[in-house]
Structure formats: C-alpha cells, structure tokens
C-alpha cells in the first residue's frame, strides 16, 4: 500500500512538461545503442525495439533491467539507472520508433480482489508461486518475487511478457483486478505473526530445525545436565 501511495505521489510531482524525444534519443545513443542499434533496429547484443511500445520500455527502465550489464544473464530488477524525466523522454523516443502497447492505467482502489485472485491463481502462480514470492521457471530462469513491484510495472509485465514470461492479453478491467490482487498480496494480512519470507515450507522447515529443534536440544541439555554436587547418591537397578 505504501509503495502505491509513494508511486502516486511521485507521479503527481513529476514535471508537467511534455517529455522530449530528442533528449531521449541522446540518452539512447549513450546507453542503449551499443546493444539495440543506432535506430533501435536491433543488433548483435540486443533485440529490435521497433514497435515494442511504451509499456515495454517503461517496464524495463523502471525496474532497472535496462541498460543491461551482462547479456548472458537474465535481466533482474535493480535501482533504475535514470530519473523520472529521463525515463519519460527515453520512453517517448523509443515508442516513436513504431506502434506498440502504451503504458497501461491502473487503479488498484477499484480492483475486484477476488476476481484478481482467480486470474492470478490460473495464470501466474505456476511461475511466481502461489503467494507471489517467486519461483524457478524451466531450466535456468526464475520468476522473481512480485512482492516489491509497483502496480504499473505489474500491469506492464503482464502485457509485455519480459524475458521468459509469456504475454497476456487481458481486458482492461481484468488486468486492473489482477494488479489489484498482486498489490494486495504484497500487503496481505499476517495475523499469524512474523512472516518468514513467504516462501513457505522451505523457510518453515529451516525455522523448525534451527529455532525449534535447536531450542529443544538446548533445553534437553539443560534439564538433563549432570549436577556435580548432587546430594543424592545415584540409584541402581
């Protein structure tokens, strides 16, 4: 919830002026052209960006995935390399190269959570885990945890299908429900106490052994300790 508020606040403070594709092009030449080609036509180290759309560029930049550092590894979420204005101008430039999906609009407050839950369970839980904490996909990719992702990026990822993830074509309303549910999962009620990473049984087993069994072994040692100056003589049978 907090991240949503922050995101909304961030959006409203952003400069109202139109993003400038020319500035975006300069940034593009500096940071992206080496892999994606001078005109975004694609090159040896990166795919074509013609027609990927604003949704894709915005997603890859705001999750810090681009510029990619090591192309032999899966792009991962990190701190964005650019500030808001720079991202906006880059998005304006790259999306001017060809028609593509725009940045989706989401409003998690109106989302139908239960419908979103069903969509999530049927479409996303296989890779991202039943509670969105992430999981492994195929042989050498992993689906990251969704518990830190901002709502708009969740919607963008669903449309774009980054990396090994498939693209999804949901109705606008369904997409909103889905994003609403994932955002809710990020802050799901934890009436049971400390949540341990939400990765489920693996973390629970670890805690059971280290904290639980560890404590009980220590307790056994304490209860069963030999008292050196015990007054009673040992009994025999």
């Amino acid at each position: 919830m907090l991240s949503l508020v922050l995101w909304a606040a961030g959006a409203s403070v952003a400069p109202a002026q139109e993003p400038d594709p020319a500035e975006g092009r300069e940034l593009y030449i500096d940071s992206c052209a080496s892999c994606h080609g001078a005109e975004g036509e694609g090159a040896e180290h990166g795919p074509s960006l013609v027609g990927v759309g604003a949704a894709s560029v915005d997603f890859y930049l705001r999750t810090g995935r681009m510029p990619l550092a090591n192309e032999s590894q899966q792009a991962v979420k990190k701190e964005p390399a650019f500030d808001d204005a720079q991202i906006e101008s880059l998005v304006a430039y790259v999306s001017s190269l060809g028609e593509g999906p725009p940045i989706p609009e989401v409003d998690t407050a109106t989302a139908e959570l239960s419908a979103g839950q069903e969509l999530f369970r049927d479409n996303c839980s296989a890779c991202h885990g039943a509670a969105g904490a992430g999981g492994a996909v195929g042989s050498n990719a992993f689906a990251p945890s969704l518990l830190e992702t901002d709502p708009v990026q969740i919607a963008e990822a669903t449309i774009v299908g980054p990396g090994q993830m498939p693209k999804f074509a949901f109705e606008e309303e369904a997409l909103n429900d889905l994003v609403g549910y994932v955002t809710y999962l990020q802050d799901v009620p934890e009436p049971g106490g400390e949540d341990i990473g939400r990765v489920g049984p693996v973390a629970e087993g670890f805690v059971a052994w280290v904290a639980g069994m560890g404590a009980l072994i220590a307790i056994s040692m304490f209860v069963g300790r030999k008292r050196e100056r015990s007054p009673a003589e040992p009994d025999q049978a």
């Binding site: 039943a130 106490g193 629970e204 805690v207």
Partner: peptide
Amino acid sequence: GLVQINGVWAYG
C-alpha cells in the same frame, strides 16, 4: 504465537 506458518489464505 509469534511466527506465521502456512498462511493458506495467501495461497488460495
């Protein structure tokens, strides 16, 4: 009482 285990509501 202190550590949540198997929060099945989040799994659906």
